[in-house]
Simulated assay, not measured.
Amino acid sequence: MTDTTRIAVLVGSLRADSLNRKLAELLRDEAPAGVELDIVEGLGELPFYNEDLDAASAPAAAVALRERVSGADRVLAVTPEYNGTMPAVLNNAIDWLSRPYGAGALVGKPFGVVGATPTPYGGKWAHADTVRSAGIAGAVVVEEVTVSQSAIEVDPTTDADVRAKLVAAVTTLAEFAPAVSAA
């Protein structure tokens, strides 16, 4: 048994120099003691979800994604906002993780979302769509983790207050204990 909490990180931007990728890397590098952030690569290699592709044997990229998330204790999406919603690459990853229905890799996993955008609202619509989709897929959404940071007047990668808020969100996700239901 390990004392390390593993958090799979889904980055909603494919751009190598993405602000949100930089935030994910920063969070990985500044993770609290006992917390390991695993940035899941290869989301751009996933074909659009299609049940026909998922029938007999799923594509290798989907299998790898499911294995990485299944092996994690928690899931964190770090994402920008595209046209008022979550990026297609993140939506597609959640679609793959939601299957098989009721038993997908997200089922029962504590889930949070953070990110920054150069808009006044910091991506709050994308983040709301992400938590809704993940919740429908079976994740246990940890609302107090959500951080939607505007990057208009501040650089989230260097501002001490923003960095502290993001690290606190990771800590909250790592320490989250789902309520045990009485059967």
Rank of each mutant, 00 (worst) to 15 (best):
L90A: 03
V162F: 01
E175K: 14
A24T: 04
G12Y: 04
D3A: 07
A139Q: 07
T2A: 07
G123W: 03
A88D: 00
S148A: 14
V9W: 10
V140C: 04
Q149K: 12
S18P: 04
V162L: 04
D159F: 04
R99S: 06
V142H: 01
D159V: 05
A182W: 14
S70A: 13
L23N: 00
A137C: 04
G71S: 14
H127M: 13
D17H: 12
E153K: 15
I152F: 01
K165M: 13
R15M: 01
A16N: 05
N91W: 02
P156T: 11
L53W: 05
M86I: 05
A160N: 08
N20K: 06
N50H: 12
P110F: 09
N92W: 07
T157E: 13
P110C: 05
A174S: 08
G44F: 00
M86P: 09
N83C: 10
V140D: 06
T2V: 07
E41M: 00
S57Q: 15
A16Y: 02
A61Y: 05
V170N: 02
L27Y: 01
V141D: 03
E41L: 00
A58Y: 13
V170D: 04
Y121S: 06
I39N: 03
E36H: 09
I136Q: 11
T157P: 12
A58I: 11
T157Y: 14
T85A: 09
G115M: 05
A64F: 08
A93E: 12
R163A: 02
P110D: 11
A179S: 11
V142S: 02
I136Y: 07
R21V: 13
L23D: 00
I94S: 08
A77L: 11
T172M: 00
A164D: 12
D161K: 14
A72C: 13
T2H: 01
V180D: 00
A93C: 12
D159Q: 06
K109F: 08
A168D: 10
A103N: 13
T130Q: 03
A164K: 10
R68I: 00
S98D: 07
E30T: 15
G108A: 02
A60E: 15
L46C: 10
L173F: 04
Y101I: 11
V114C: 09
N83F: 10
P120S: 11
